[in-house]
Amino acid sequence: MLDALRQPLESGQVVVARAQGLMRMPARFLLVLAANPCPCGRHGSRGGGCECRPSSVRRYRARLSGPLLDRVDLRVTVEPVTRAELTNPGVHGESTKAVAARVRAARERAAARYAGTPWQTNSEVPGHELRTRWPGSPGALGRAEEDMERGLLTARGLDRVLRVAWTLADLAGHDRPTADDVDGALELRTGVRRGAALTGGRP
């Protein structure tokens, strides 16, 4: 059933075909998936204790197919919260107000860039348009292209990495994506660290 989401995730439409005709309905949505790393939920965690067989872990993870995951832009591993993090009153993240202001400024940058086009946000722009009309900085796609050559990234994946890289650039106030922005997008897609990505002073 989850794989039925592939087509609307790609096109932003649900297409129903019957003998009498074909109907297209708008279906642009934000999909959030959550899963444990294994059936017991402790595989690879800091506390350990996983007793799942490797075959059980593989079978569990296979419930999310490769084609569906290829359409997921951000994959974030969340570690269990520690006792110290729960009880330490000095541990605080950014305020909602600060984050909202940064996101609002980023969306305004994107809207200004796409003024006069059918699009308003990075997620709406076709990959071909981003590559040709709004390219990144020289050499910015280096690691992404290497991943494609090694079979680690599909053409669809490259387009999605580029959209996320533009969002990171907008959040950072860059005129166009840098190598760090693209590496950050790759890290968010794969969970694999890419040098200085996401750590180089970006707000």
Rank of each mutant, 00 (worst) to 15 (best):
R18C: 10
A19L: 14
A19R: 13
Q20I: 12
Q20M: 05
G21H: 06
G21S: 03
L22Y: 05
L22Q: 14
L22F: 06
M23N: 03
R24P: 01
R24H: 05
M25V: 15
M25T: 15
M25A: 15
P26R: 11
P26I: 13
P26V: 13
R28C: 02
R28N: 04
F29S: 00
L30D: 00
L30W: 00
L31V: 07
V32H: 05
V32G: 00
L33P: 03
L33M: 15
L33W: 11
L33I: 00
A35Q: 11
A35L: 09
A35T: 14
A35N: 02
A35S: 11
N36K: 02
P37W: 12
P37I: 14
C38K: 06
P39D: 07
P39C: 12
C40W: 07
C40S: 10
C40Q: 06
G41H: 00
R42D: 09
H43A: 11
H43T: 00
H43S: 10
G44M: 04
S45M: 10
R46I: 14
R46W: 12
R46H: 11
R46G: 11
G48Q: 08
G49A: 09
C50H: 02
C50Y: 02
E51Y: 12
E51G: 15
E51C: 14
E51W: 13
C52Y: 12
C52N: 07
